[in-house]
Design a protein around this nucleic acid. Structure first.
Length: 455
RNA sequence: GGUCUGGUGGCAGAAUGGUGAUGCAGCGGACUGCAAAUCCGCGAAUGUGGGUUCGAUUCCCGCCCAGACCUCCA
């Protein structure tokens, strides 16, 4: 890497500090993110996590020659079993449809696919291998058809989420199964009855616990040590704590994830999203009447570690910001040319723990310059936007793409209005403009004539 | 109850031990037949009580409030 490149600093959840990011192998930066449990449509909270990963990986790809990004799919889970039963459909149908919808929703907001997207059910063997090793090394034990991880065998248990084992026990709100040696012990393998998906194993027919899949799949695709592991902050405990314990005990010479990234939660109108409050918003709900890019921009307006309050007003504002950006892109040079690199000022904001609000402020400055006629700034604006997955449209697509009104009819009315204006019949001219406005079409009289756009 | 975050203009949202970004909204002006867009300008904020300090929004403590986690969760 040339020394002029801004250097990436990332907040690490384990040490609770922002530290320089130093790849284990600069030629292959390795990232693992916890993907969806596929039993329902993705909601905008899921989206925030996937988007944080997307921006991080896009930035890493800008800074380093190669990135391996792995994001799993959890397709074995008791919520899936319950939903399939409720829907009277097979688990295979439910998971296949949900995965398809998930991919569509993410693609709609320009989230790039991971390099590897492993499915839990395709890695049962790897999980069983790990469980076997953990039993052999004394970190796991069998009890009543279950295999449990013994948290007491891992000194550093609790270090990731920053809590002591005592804290964990004190507030436990779920009944502790009697076969656990320690209340904190968690399931690696559990028995399945005839109605429940299961796989044969040395411990009987059963299915994996929640955490072991990520340990098995990250190991398979990224090795004993990799650079970044991420997800929503609600995964920090117990999911990531348990993953880490399993993996570190199974592969004591590795360090598992060198760096932990967790995004903060999303609120809707100031409240946590929940089905009981009825404010549970799927990506699809939002995209029904909002351009996907506005949703993406809204989520990038807050730094990923800040709680973000999702509102319709915020969505509208994001759309207005894009109006201005695209207006600035109208100042791109006529003949297409390769874009310049995004300006260092912009990249260094992203390198400051993904400070997207400040990066967007840089883009506003570029937009100002572009609107003043600076074509280089216009090109830099597009390059900057593209780096974080924005501004892929042309201004024409942005301002007119969603319009359902016939363009020929609009042009005819514009011509008629022009004639009326020449005749100084402003009554007729304004009537035409109002007529179009009623259809959501805004006319703009400029030095080069009249143009139109969708409201 | 335990652990942990956070509280910044009307709203969203950065940063900082020493004149507190940016965007939206608002107000005034330019431009326009009128608009829209654009441009110029303006007003507007560090929850609360202490402490440390020459100086605190920033560091420390109490309080209030909000949120997350405490074995389903992005």
């Amino acid at each position: 890497m040339p020394d002029t490149q801004p250097r990436l600093h990332l907040h690490d959840s384990r040490t609770r500090s922002t530290v320089p990011f130093v790849p284990l192998d600069p030629l292959n930066v390795r990232v693992y993110y916890c993907g969806p449990t596929v039993y329902d449509l993705a909601h905008i909270g899921n989206l925030r996590a996937m988007l944080t990963a997307d921006v991080l990986v896009r930035l890493l790809r800008h800074l380093y020659p190669h990135v391996t990004y792995v994001r799993n799919i959890t397709d074995v889970d008791d919520k899936i079993n319950a939903r399939a039963l409720a829907n009277s459909e097979s688990i295979a149908e439910l998971t296949a449809r949900t995965i398809r919808d998930f991919h569509d929703d993410l693609a709609a907001v320009s989230i790039l696919p991971p390099d590897v997207e492993p499915r839990a059910t395709h890695h049962i063997g790897e999980m069983q291998d790990m469980i076997h090793r953990l039993i052999k090394s004394g970190h796991a034990y069998e009890a009543e058809g279950h295999v449990l991880f013994a948290v007491g065998t891992y000194d550093s248990y609790g270090a990731l989420s920053g809590r002591s084992p005592d804290d964990l026990i004190a507030g436990a709100r779920v009944e502790v199964a009697p076969y656990k040696r320690d209340p904190g012990d968690f399931v690696l393998w559990k028995p399945s009855d005839d109605q429940t998906p299961g796989w044969d194993s040395p411990w009987g027919r059963g299915r994996p616990g929640w955490h072991i899949e990520c340990s098995a799949m990250s190991h398979r695709y990224l090795g004993e040590s990799f650079d970044i592991h991420g997800g929503g902050s609600d995964l920090l405990f117990p999911h990531h704590e348990n993953e880490r314990a399993q993996s570190m005990c199974c592969h004591p010479h590795g360090r598992f994830a060198a760096h932990w990234v967790h995004n903060a939660m999303l609120l809707v109108n100031g409240e946590k999203m929940s089905k009981s409050l009825g404010n549970f918003l799927t990506v699809r709900d939002v995209l029904r009447d909002t351009p996907a890019e506005a949703l993406r921009l809204l989520l990038l307006r807050a730094q990923y570690r800040s709680v973000l309050n999702f509102t319709q007003a915020g969505l509208d504002e994001a759309r207005q910001m894009l109006d201005r950006f695209y207006r600035a892109l109208e100042h791109l040079p006529e003949q297409p040319a390769p874009l310049p690199p995004p300006p260092d000022g912009f990249v260094s904001m992203l390198c400051d723990d993904l400070n997207t609000p400040r990066a967007l402020a840089e883009m506003h400055a570029l937009a100002d310059a572009a609107l003043g006629g600076d074509t280089l700034a216009a090109r830099q604006l597009k390059a900057a936007g593209n780096l974080i997955g924005l501004l892929h449209d042309t201004p024409e697509q942005w301002f007119r793409g969603r319009s359902t009104v016939d363009a020929g009819a609009i042009e005819a009315l514009i011509a008629e209005r022009l004639a009326a204006r020449k005749a100084r019949d402003f009554g007729r001219a304004d009537a035409i403009r109002n007529e179009l406005a009623a259809q959501g079409i805004i006319l703009e009289d400029g030095p080069q004539g009249t143009t139109w756009r969708q409201a």
